[in-house]
Amino acid sequence: MSNDIVSEDRVLIDRYVNQNDQDAFNILVQKYSGRAYQIAYGVLGNREDAEEVAQDAFVRIYRALPKFRGDSEFSTWMYRIIINLARNKHRWNRVRGAGKNFSIDAPIDNGRGDGELTIDLPDQGMAPDQISLYNELKEKTKQAMAKLPESYREAVILRTVKGLSYEEIAEVLGCKVGTVKSRIARGREEIRNNLDI
């Protein structure tokens, strides 16, 4: 399965680089943009920032792909770019003393005071009080994630969202497998403690 995915990526890259096949690049975007967004969101905790980072990463990849040597898998290379851009953005937000952007074009608050303009659509199978509890739990998870050290957050998000193996996460983050295991475990445990579940 993994080998099939690798070879498929290589074929697509080859079509894009050598034949200037834009459709091939678009397939890569279709395939990986969601994961890129999810990783950026995990690091940043903000939808708008996450989309900016995902978009910026792909624009960079679009330009740099002809120079991609294939030493690592395309996905690993892409995750590294995403993580680095998200880190930069997160640090910049921290320096600026602000974490969340919202536009005056849509100045409707969601009532949670987090500046995000999201509307949670209720699950038809949940009672109103369950929906409320579930939303509360999601909000707490978000806050707990934001409290995690950066290194824990990155490892946790790469594991839980993308389902990368420990070895792959170690390659993306540039650390040892044992360190990855430890960071993921501590991250999960800290979130769990913050959630009181």
Binding site: R47, A54, V156, R159, I197
Partner: peptide, 25 residues
């Protein structure tokens, strides 16, 4: 449950891939 909540929280928005493709183009 923590893993599931994290996945739920980070669902990508609709039309993301298209917007990225346009930006790249």
């Amino acid at each position: 449950q923590v893993d599931a909540l994290l996945q739920e929280l980070s669902q990508p928005p609709a039309g993301l891939a298209l917007r990225i493709q346009q930006a790249c183009a």
